[in-house]
Each structure stands twice: as structure tokens, then as C-alpha cells.
Amino acid sequence: MGRVVLVTGAARHLGGLMVRSLVRDPAVDRVVGVDVVPPRRPLLGAEFVRADIRNPVIGRVLNSAGVDTVVHMGVIATPQQAGGRTAMKDINVIGTMQLLAACQKSESVSRLVVKSTSSVYGAGPRDPALFTEGMSPKHPPTSGWAKDSVEVEGYVRGFARRRPDVEVSILRLANVIGPRVETAMTAYFTLPVIPTVLGFDARLQFVHEDDSIAALHRAVTAPATGVFNIAGDGVLALSQAVRRTGRPTLSVPGALLGVVGRALAPTRLVDFTSEQVRFLTYGRAIDTSRAQRELGFSAKRSTSAAFDEFLAGHDLGPGFVSGILDGATRLIATRGAAHA
């Protein structure tokens, strides 16, 4: 008998990709997607249940479908997606508690895969160059998505303690990027003028949206369980990433960036929460060797390649600057040839 997998957050982009990826897997019999809102595109080959994971309905879904694997991707990253920070925190924290409570009661659930984020490591000047899964944050996150994710991971650990028979994996993803996904970072890099923090150059790491789905899928099927860092190889300096977009930058002192962020908040163009500003100041990178060794997963695209695919998808690039330099190169070449 094949697997029955339930995916939370299925109406959003990554959740939808995950559902489609599982539908294509012959080892999986049924895929049940759950979300508060209906999906934008129909989830062909899967069932969709419109339910709020914040209420106990989720338990009935688990039992009636005989779900054996739960993939929790329902933690949302920006208040805009939920309609305010309060609703966001509710969905993230209370939603996870309800889901785990239902899993604890369920007799069919034998595996839980949770999509988390590398932002649980925080960001600050005393960080090591690369975080491994066993390190505790030097500057724990104090707000927003990162703090919610820390709390979610805490509840998941509690669940794992109470139900030791359920196999639990937590995937800490670096910033997901790609041609289609929309995140705080993609909004940032598509701004007409990109503000950066004066005097600092953060190290950034990305994982391509398709690679993030491949990693989660691997966590559903692989024998290994545990906490895994997932990212594309290598890092990009923020200044370097911005130059690749071809957009002009504006360097402002870190304290001011928060003010600019609050001023821009009503436009919903971008969100510069204090956590995001810390990240843009100090950056963060994670060590992915455990995922390679134990999970047998390594991202197909490096950080740099994933970022370039994002740029191509948004028609961004340093074309203007290259054009000027091409002109100058031709000028020198013809002058050299004329004298040769």
C-alpha cells in the first residue's frame, strides 16, 4: 500500500509545488492538501481540504484519510500573507499546536516533516561563518517569522518527545529563491532602488525553489530523520547580489533602514522588520554537510546559480553596465588594432 501524505499550506506557491511533486511519486497513493484559502491553481491529482489548522477539524481530516505522513509547510513568513502580524502569529504558532495535537492523537501518522528556516539561527556579529545543526544561536531572533519558527521548532521537539514512535524531520531552509516564488527577499531585490546597510556586507545563501521541494520530498521518503540545514552551495555577498540585479543601491545606516522600512510598510512593497534589517546587516550561512551525508540530499543549484535564475525570471541583470563596458572594450581594441 502506498503512502498517504497531508501537506499544510498547500494553497501557497511552495505548498502547491510540494503537492504536485508528491502526486508524481509512484510510492505515494494519496495527497491531501490543506490550507485556509483555496489554491490559485487546481491541485491536479490531489485532494484539497479548505480548513483552518487553527481549529480541531484537522484531526478529522487526518483520521478519515488515514494520513501516515504530515508535511507541515503552513508557517507563513510575512504579515502581508496573513493580513496582519497578529493573524500571522496565530496561524504559525496556534496552527502548529493544533496540528501537532491532532498528530499526537492520530494512530495512522508515522512521520512528520516540518519546513523551517535558517533564520532560527538569528544573525549577528558573533556568529560563526557557518552554522551546523547542533549550534545554538548567538543572537536569538526576537521577532517575526524567525521567532515564530523558533517556537514552532520547540513545539515539534515537544511532540517528538511525547510520540517517540513518530519519525520527525525538521528542514531549516536558507532563503528560498527562484523565478516564481515570492518572498521578502524577492521583493527586496526587485525594488527600483535597493537600500543596503552602510558599512556592512552581509553573506547571503539561497536555495532554489525546486531544490527546496526536492529536499522536502527527500525528507518524506528517506530513511534518515532529524534536523537538516538545506541551502545551495557557496555564498553571495549582499553587495555582489545587488550588482547582479543591475539596480542602483542606496547605503543607509542600519538604524535608518528600520525607519525607512516602517515608512514604506503601508505601501506593502517590502518589509524591513528588525529581524530583516539584522539579516541584511550581518547575513548568515549554514553548513549543509549533514543533509548530504545522512539525507543524501544536495541542492542541484548553487546559491549563485539559484540567484541568477531568479534574476532571469524577473528580467533583471547588469545589462546597462555591461553595455557601457562593452563599448569601452571595443574602443580600446580598435585603437590597439589601428596602431598594431
Partner: peptide, 11 residues
């Protein structure tokens, strides 16, 4: 100017 260089994990 086009960001076409590599930095290692430490920056």
C-alpha cells in the same frame, strides 16, 4: 560592477 566573482563561505 556586474558581481561576477566568487567569495568563499567566510566572505
Amino acid at each position: 560592477l556586474t558581481g561576477d566573482y566568487t567569495v568563499d563561505d567566510f566572505g
